[in-house]
Nucleic acid binder design. Sequence first.
DNA 1: CGTCATATATTCTACAAAGTCGACTATATC
DNA 2: GATATAGTCGACTTTGTAGAATATATGACG
Lengths: 108, 108
Amino acid sequence: MDKNLGELEQLVLLALVRLGDDAYGVSVQEEIRSRASRDASFATIYTTLARLEEKGYVESYQGEPTAERGGRSKKHFIMTKAGKQALQRSLRALRTMTSGLDAKWDTR
Amino acid sequence: MDKNLGELEQLVLLALVRLGDDAYGVSVQEEIRSRASRDASFATIYTTLARLEEKGYVESYQGEPTAERGGRSKKHFIMTKAGKQALQRSLRALRTMTSGLDAKWDTR
DNA sequence: CGTCATATATTCTACAAAGTCGACTATATC
DNA sequence: GATATAGTCGACTTTGTAGAATATATGACG
């Protein structure tokens, strides 16, 4: 278990961490777009989320309808413990690979 | 131009930065294995290196035979300017996504 | 009310790109 | 040729990608 995370999977999981209870398809896309300057269609985001769920790295639950002005209800996502571990493992790998490099490369 | 880097592509490019002139298939594999605790076969490393070269993110040149004790000569790899930019872009995305998170998540 | 215009959100289908590696090939030295 | 070192091939799995279609909610209006 505990395979390697793809690059987008990392970003999506990080978005979940940042968004907490507000994490759902649209907000995840927006977070990744604005923060990471990384563009991905809804379909791409949802596909990734679905795959992460299959792997047991995230769980989802249905939210109530938007209240204000129509539209389908949100599907919220939350990272699981396994997801957290996988993400940390991934970030750790990057960190050790970047640490000690000179200013241009050291990402901290 | 300047597509997104995959997760392994990032690690391989970082290995090139770390290894400098000593970067070639075997040393890249070793660096990634020991530093990032990430296992990948030679074939995987070479495939990735070849794809990075196609994209113009690395260049290669043939080294002299090993001198000590037989064996084929090494194919050295070095990151191009475009590769450097792509890598920095990738790392920047991760950095902005992790920055500001609490201690468990802040990777620095 | 019934249904349509409109807004919001998610899923389907299908293909491209990246990751993976066992087996094989190439090239040196002794 | 035995042995060591390095690189390539072929083939398949997993991730990334998005256009188009679908689902569901509200408000408007005759």
